[in-house]
């Protein structure tokens, strides 16, 4: 696939739509043990950054942030939602998710394609969690001593989910074989 401006524009638009769609339908929220839902809404920004570069990632992050702002304002569903009406909490951190994921990917790509995708998913996701939780604390919606507990309880599983989805989507899209190129059903043949 040749790189083109048109593709960058379209991928940015379409993956922004995915992020917004995941938010609007609540499909992007996975109920979690900690009580606060996990979210995978930032994953499109990571995928977009890995496929089409940091600017595309930032644009998707911007749309994702604006969606969460609008949603917090129009249809709040959680006690922290009013905080997200502040664009410094809902938009600014999300702008950096894609570029961070891109840098992580760029540092490791090449021979180690699959690990690079995993790491970029983790980095992008953790940047999202830490910046959002940090901003929440900064504006007094959380206390700072909750910072690490929240990052651990939600940020780590979110990072895992982001890595998983990023690897699955990008590897399939680019045709990179995972698992040593073998179907897992192969293991069933010897059982």
């Amino acid at each position: 696939m040749k790189k083109s401006v048109v593709r960058k524009i379209v991928v940015a638009g379409v993956l922004s739509a995915v992020a917004a769609f995941l938010g609007l339908t609540r499909l992007g929220y996975i109920p979690w043990f900690s009580g606060a839902s996990l979210t995978v809404m930032h994953v499109p920004a990571i995928v977009g950054a890995v496929l089409e570069g940091p600017i595309v990632g930032a644009v998707i992050g911007l749309v994702f942030g604006l969606t969460s702002l609008l949603q917090a304002a129009i249809a709040p569903t959680g006690p922290l939602d009013p905080a997200f009406v502040n664009p410094l909490i809902s938009v600014l951190p999300r702008l950096l998710v894609g570029p961070a994921a891109f840098l992580a990917y760029a540092a490791f790509r090449g021979k180690l394609e699959i690990p690079a995708l995993g790491i970029s998913g983790i980095v992008g996701s953790l940047v999202n969690t830490m910046l959002v939780v940090g901003a929440l604390a900064l504006f007094g919606f959380l206390t700072w001593d909750l910072f690490w507990p929240v990052v651990t309880a939600n940020g780590l599983p979110e990072a895992g989910a982001a890595a998983l989805v990023n690897v699955a989507v990008v590897a399939a899209w680019k045709g990179v074989a995972g698992r040593g190129g073998k179907a897992s059903i192969a293991a069933e043949e010897d059982r």
């Binding site: 991928v11 638009g13 379409v14 739509a17 979690w32 499109p44 995928v47 989805v165 899209w173």
Partner: peptide, 27 residues
């Protein structure tokens, strides 16, 4: 929650792949 994650992954992954395929068509 673990079972729900397992159920949503098979939706999220093809949804994003479909989105990329449709981007290609739109390009």
């Amino acid at each position: 929650p673990l079972r729900r994650v397992k159920a949503w992954l098979p939706v999220l992954v093809p949804l994003m792949l479909r989105a990329l395929e449709r981007s290609e068509a739109l390009v």
